[in-house]
Amino acid sequence: MADAKVIPFGEEPRARRKSLRAGRAGRGPVLAPVPEARTGPDEPAEPGRPAERPARSLDERIAGGLNFLRRRITGDYEIDDFGYDEELTDQVLMSLLRPLAEKYFRVEVRGIENIPGKGGALIVANHSGTLPLDGLMLQVAVHDNHPAQRHLRLLAADLVFVLPVINELARKAGHTLACAEDAQRLLERGEVVGVMPEGFKGIGKPFADRYKLQRFGRGGFVSTALKAGVPIVPCSIVGAEEIYPMIGNAKTLARVLGIPYFPVTPTFPWLGPLGAVPLPTKWTIQFGEPIATDGYSPEAADDPMLMFNLTDQVRETIQHTLYKLLVQRRSVFF
């Protein structure tokens, strides 16, 4: 647990944590841990996925590592149009997030079979937790639990692509801007795309409103899925709401810093960087029955009533599943 706790500082607090702390605590502590987490001592790769990796000899691992190193330093690897670096994501970024998902939040994944084995799909999830850790955990969950090890391509808020370092990591991890053009292009290429239509309204809502779904934007995700003819997979994430219980919002400070909200939790900002350690809640990610969209005619994407109905259907499904999961949950932490 002790080393797992270090991870959230170093890696992938994709959008806001950095900006928040950059504003408060200066740049030093924000940027410093990133290289530290990555360049850390070359301890054997045990923290990775001991269960899935057959025992490989040290020699083989060194050989593999040197091959990887060789490709990286000579620039001999491929990225796609969106800047997604599959090799880096699989070998480095995922390995850094995995302990957080497996050991810290102990993510339990249900209904993974609802994500198709191939072809495009749009996963629509609720958004919560002050910092978008839920998106990252979702990405790990889909990749590690799906039999085809599908890569989730998340659609992220524009703030992510404005911030230095974070935009670079987000692009390399396969995320792109949440806009219809990018989403449609990815879906048409047959990728699994993840979207959290609540956006800042969801992630930045006060603790008292936990598990109450906010408005689902303008339902643009439905028309994008319809145009691409891919199924919509509703996804409910339980556990992310309690990682940073947001009891207050320093709105003036947020406006000064140019961010949508400035969270005040029982520990943040009072304890400084320590306050940014998420609470070790127990997570459940449930994928619901896919909603097929290929039965509609091409003009249906321009029918506002149908869009509202489908949006509501997806929203209701996620909300009901959330309530069901909450009833089943024994405790926030176990």
Binding site: T39, A45, P47, G48, G65, L69, V92
Partner: peptide, 8 residues
């Protein structure tokens, strides 16, 4: 391996 990745 992961350590290789970090070196890279």
């Amino acid at each position: 391996t992961h350590d290789g990745g970090r070196q890279g």
